[in-house]
């Protein structure tokens, strides 16, 4: 998608970030990624859409009970938490594996010179 003026389009910096006429529908790229993971897992049959809706609404209720004003900006945090719960419940992964993978990514960032693509060490 080029622009009429021929200048670089700032939106192309985030070309995976869905937008609509009123601006981004995701605040950050990870939100879109988390969104897509849930759709892909559902398509794979890992969980039903009903199981998903139940898991998500539980997270939202729990967050509200814990004092989250829930203005929409934390929505994908609940989404991500619901995804993690289902991954654990369906025994797709376990919390030890997830925690060590998070640390592996953190180390990968710290070990990668700035500007280069960050990849996990095998």
């Amino acid at each position: 998608m080029g622009t009429l003026s021929g200048r670089p389009d700032p939106l192309n910096e985030f070309q995976l970030q869905p937008r609509d006429e009123n601006g981004p529908v995701f605040n950050e790229p990870w939100e879109a990624q988390a969104f897509a993971i849930v759709l892909a897992l559902h398509k794979q049959g890992v969980f039903s859409w009903d199981e998903w809706a139940t898991s998500l609404s539980r997270q939202i209720s729990a967050a509200q009970a814990a004092g989250d004003p829930d203005l929409g900006d934390t929505y994908y945090q609940h989404w991500l938490a619901a995804l993690e719960v289902l991954i654990l419940e369906k025994e797709v992964s376990d919390s030890g594996e997830i925690v060590s993978r998070i640390e592996a990514w953190r180390e990968a960032y710290l070990a990668t010179p700035h500007g280069q693509p960050v990849e996990l060490k095998k």
Binding site: E28, P29, W30, Q33, A34, I37, A40, L41, Y76, Q77, L80, L83, E84, I87, V92, S93, E97, I98, R101, I102, A104, W105, R106, Y109, L110, A111, T112, P113, H114, G115, Q116, V118, L120
Partner: peptide, 20 residues
């Protein structure tokens, strides 16, 4: 010589995605 790691939420999404 390094890249600042992104937010914890981004790291978690990357972790889940790579495992899946």
């Amino acid at each position: 010589d390094h890249t600042d790691p992104p937010s914890e939420l981004t790291l978690k999404v990357k972790a889940l995605e790579s495992l899946l």
